[in-house]
Design a protein around this nucleic acid. Sequence first.
DNA 1: GGCTAACCGGGGCGCGTGTTCCGTATATTC
DNA 2: GAATATACGGAACACGCGCCCCGGTTAGCC
Lengths: 190, 190
Amino acid sequence: MADRPLRADARRNRERVLEAARELFAASGLAVPLDDIAARAGVGPGTVYRHFPTKEALFEAVTVARLRDLVEFARGCAADDDPAAAFDRFLDRLTEEAAAKRNLPEAFTAVGMEGLVPVQEELYAALAVLVGRAQEVGAVRPEIRVPDLLVLLKAMLQAAGESPDPTVLDRIALVLRDGLRPPTDPGSIL
Amino acid sequence: MADRPLRADARRNRERVLEAARELFAASGLAVPLDDIAARAGVGPGTVYRHFPTKEALFEAVTVARLRDLVEFARGCAADDDPAAAFDRFLDRLTEEAAAKRNLPEAFTAVGMEGLVPVQEELYAALAVLVGRAQEVGAVRPEIRVPDLLVLLKAMLQAAGESPDPTVLDRIALVLRDGLRPPTDPGSIL
DNA sequence: GGCTAACCGGGGCGCGTGTTCCGTATATTC
DNA sequence: GAATATACGGAACACGCGCCCCGGTTAGCC
């Protein structure tokens, strides 16, 4: 209970494990063997378990951080003056991150990971604001709900991760963006 | 080599295994344990292996059939008079099938399954015609290529399959459809 | 109805992978 | 610099699952 400060080498190893986990989870998702993470960190498997009670816990630790960043960004966008531009900025950010981060899509809807739920809910709430405001100014079709968006975004991230050709992502993002806009309603172009 | 006709009980069991595999693969994809399939078919695991040399072979057998149907449908669409409507019909069919068929998306891009390749190529070719014709009449944005479409559809079906709410799929299909259309080009509405 | 060959069932092997354990090494403290 | 708690490493364990094998059974044929 009395959190004694970690020994110096312990803290260093903890950081190394997190770093290795970040990279490998991003590359191959949850499928990567834990031993590989340990090896990449220059550490034995036992050491990983000293710091994280389970493989899932490690995944959580890595993923919560990434999701938290995303939530923060979404909140920043929500505070933007121009709701349409704000929504666009968020999509931009997501397509950037999509490059080769397979753990993000898994994190969106992963179930059964206790620690992920709060951040998922925060993301949901932030997106609700972002989408709602964009819909008010007619930048996003009104029937769209946050879960729809999450599914779509997840699909995009997944698709991007699987395709070897990076330009695929550009075209997919294009389709998504145009599809989210309301069907041309005369006079909607500010 | 001389394909002696299968014994009656053997043929019956083979059919049962295929049936069980269809259902379970559709529900949970390749992840379902082979023993479950055997149990569902009322058969021992050994019997499954008598008919299919490997679990992947069973998956192939089930999936090739489904893909072949899809290819046939796509070809039918390609022969349609109205290319725009034909493309739409294909999308409709796909969203219908998406309801709870997790093996379909996996089949689109599954690699390392020898038997799947020919059908995948056929699907690719059929889609190329379908998309090409739709593009000629301005129903689909010109920069889209078949791989884009495959990746996008796959990810979407997958993501939608995970969502408990079936209406999500409807809205996603809507977004997809509008997103694939070229950005309103005055005069494109026949 | 009996004979033969084909087929069935499920127990068991091997492997990959998450997890634990303990003897050894090292940081910290006095 | 010695004492002690803390952390390390990797071998060993547990387990799920794909896959094989053999004793028993059943279908097909005379």
